[in-house]
Amino acid sequence: MSVYIAHRLFAAHDRALASDLAERLAAKVGADHVFLPFCDTDEENLVTEVKGRRLFELDRERLGRLDAMVAILHGPSLDDGVCMEIGHAAASGVPVIVLTTDFQTYSLTEAGARLEFPDPLLQAVATRIVRVTKLGPPTLPSTPAQSRFRGFQARNMAQTNTALGVTVDALLDLPDRAPRLVGSPAVIGAPVYVEASPYTAWGRDHLAKVCVDAGHTVMVPQRFTAPDPVAGALGDLTAVCSAPRLLADVSGPETPPGTALLIGAAVASGVRIAAFQPRPTFTHAHGREPNWRNLMVQYAADAHLNDGDAVLSWLAA
């Protein structure tokens, strides 16, 4: 069994949590069968001409030969690189366990169905979601006196330990791989799946209009308006993997989580991808070229577009 642990890379506590999970998995399946990004790509010490692209290539190569994925996700703002990796795994038929200790759930309307994550795609593609929301029990009176802060830390550590243990057990009981979703070859004039950014004004999808005005048939997301958001999300995933092209608006503080997931699915399915972002912000890391978006999303895209003319040129290519 080859297991990929997808997690946010950019904070020590996230890397530490993923490392703890990797150690527990390694005890069950062997260290050579667990891939931990940042650790196993040796990002801090990696020296190459275009470091971000090389990291993308290393991760994508490993994504192409998985038996299972464990993804760690917390909070309403989900890491776009992790979501992209989840999409790649889902389209490849790889079972995905999502681990969270977030006690919040979400809905698209005040009285709508409760979802595990802000975008129903995450819930739709997860083979299992391990959600451990409760702190560990309070410190017993018989234990030595400690500050309330140390006691609170211990309760959080107990919660984390429970979550990691449940995740390892779930991994060892996963079903077999599902069939792979396969994309269609690109054909000029063929349907284009257009994924708008939820950070732009609702109902004003300028990208879809540009495509329609250019004579293209357009497919747009159904999950945010479908009576059953999860069923709509599965429909969106299937549509993207069967579309010759994906035009994704990645605008926002980060690539929206569902958009990043669909980009990953498109990569795995051989779909041509264009990322639209008129006003990029750049990320910087030691030894790495400036990236205009999370590097996994950036290098997954075949084209980076910043205005309507660029969209038209991409459609005509």
Rank of each mutant, 00 (worst) to 15 (best):
A6W: 01
D14Q: 13
R15D: 02
L17Y: 15
A18R: 14
L21A: 08
A26R: 11
V29G: 12
D32S: 12
H33P: 11
F35P: 08
F35R: 04
F35I: 05
D40S: 13
D42P: 05
E49I: 09
R54G: 03
L55T: 13
D59I: 06
R65E: 14
R65V: 05
A68S: 07
A71G: 14
H74S: 14
L78M: 12
H88F: 15
A90Y: 11
G93A: 10
V98F: 03
V98T: 15
T100E: 06
T100G: 11
Y106F: 15
L108P: 12
G112Q: 03
Q123C: 05
V125Y: 02
R128T: 13
R131H: 11
K134L: 10
K134V: 11
L135A: 05
L135S: 13
S142A: 09
T143P: 02
F149H: 12
F152S: 11
A154Q: 11
R155S: 07
N156S: 10
M157V: 15
A158M: 08
T160V: 01
T162H: 04
T167H: 03
V168P: 05
L171G: 12
P175W: 00
R177W: 01
A178D: 13
V182P: 10
I188A: 11
Y193P: 10
Y193R: 09
V194L: 04
A196H: 07
A196L: 05
P198W: 08
R204N: 14
R204V: 15
R204F: 06
D205T: 07
L207C: 04
C211L: 07
V212M: 06
D213Q: 14
H216W: 15
R223P: 06
R223K: 08
F224S: 04
T225C: 02
A233E: 08
G235W: 01
T238Y: 04
A239K: 07
C241L: 02
A248H: 01
G252Q: 01
P253A: 08
L261P: 10
L262Q: 04
I263W: 00
A266D: 12
V267E: 11
G270M: 11
G270R: 06
V271W: 04
A275T: 03
P278N: 06
A285Q: 12
N291Q: 13
N294G: 10
L295K: 04
V297C: 05
Y299E: 01
A300K: 02
A301W: 00
A301L: 07
A303D: 07
H304C: 05
L312I: 03
W314I: 07
L315Q: 06
L315S: 06
A316N: 07
